[in-house]
Simulated assay, not measured.
Amino acid sequence: MNKGIGITESSSAEIALELSKILADEFVLYTKTRNAHWNVEGADFYAIHKFFENQYEQLDEAMDDVAERIRAIGHYAPATLKIYLQLTHLSEESREDNDSAGYIKELLADHQTLIIHLRENINKFATEYHDLGTSDFITGLMETHEKMAWMLRAHLK
């Protein structure tokens, strides 16, 4: 069915697939941040526990925004763990130590992976798929992750 939004069916399907990969990355990163929030230990427990809470709340909002963007272009957002694990660029890590520095390094690496993936798609959405809306959307999402990564990096100084 033609959505009447100026994006071809084939382009919107490709955009939805790329956005689904981003949604999967957001979900995996959200889950890993929740894990850090629940399980961090150490002398800095309370401050870092609250810091991770702030981060997972931002990721929750990002997930919702990505899913709604998929719907806005006429597709259904994936919503199963199985599909997320098939689509994600990130890996599920299991940690033996629950120290804040270890969690922060792991989450920072994931944010950086996601930032690079988002940056690689900004021009692709605009030029290849003629979707400036999604290009602009993921630019904003990238900026959110850049700020979150900065906040994580600041804890490692």
Rank of each mutant, 00 (worst) to 15 (best):
Ala62Trp: 00
Phe27Tyr: 13
Leu17Val: 13
Gln55Glu: 15
Tyr76Ser: 14
Arg153Cys: 06
Asp131Ile: 08
Glu120Phe: 03
Val66Lys: 04
Asn35Gly: 14
Asn54Val: 14
Gly4Lys: 04
Asn123Asp: 06
Asp25Trp: 04
Ile73Lys: 00
Asp131Glu: 01
Ser135Cys: 07
Ala67Gln: 09
Leu59His: 11
Ala36Glu: 10
Glu53Asp: 12
Lys21Glu: 10
Thr33Gln: 07
Met142Pro: 03
Tyr30Gln: 04
Tyr103Pro: 04
Ile83Asn: 15
Ser94Phe: 10
Ser91Leu: 11
Ala149Trp: 01
Gln86Met: 11
Leu141Thr: 06
Ala77Thr: 02
Phe45Ile: 14
Ala47Val: 14
Leu19Asn: 02
Phe125Trp: 05
Leu108Asn: 05
His155Val: 08
Tyr56Leu: 02
Ile7Trp: 05
His117Asn: 14
Thr31Gly: 15
Asn2Arg: 12
Phe137Ala: 06
Leu87Met: 05
Ala72Pro: 04
Thr134Val: 04
Glu120Tyr: 00
Leu141Gly: 01
Gln55Phe: 12
Ile5Phe: 06
Met151Cys: 12
His117Leu: 10
Leu132Gln: 14
His89Thr: 01
Gln58Tyr: 11
Ile22Met: 06
Glu120Val: 02
His155Asp: 10
Glu9His: 09
Glu128Met: 08
Tyr103Ser: 03
Asp60Trp: 13
Ile116His: 13
Ala13Lys: 12
Ala77Gly: 06
Ala77Pro: 08
Ala36Tyr: 04
Phe137Ser: 08
Ala67Asn: 09
Tyr76Arg: 15
Gln86Asp: 10
Leu114Asp: 12
His117Tyr: 13
Asp65Thr: 10
Asn39Thr: 11
Ile122Val: 00
His75Arg: 00
Glu96Gln: 15
Gly140Leu: 07
Gly42Ser: 08
Glu93Leu: 03
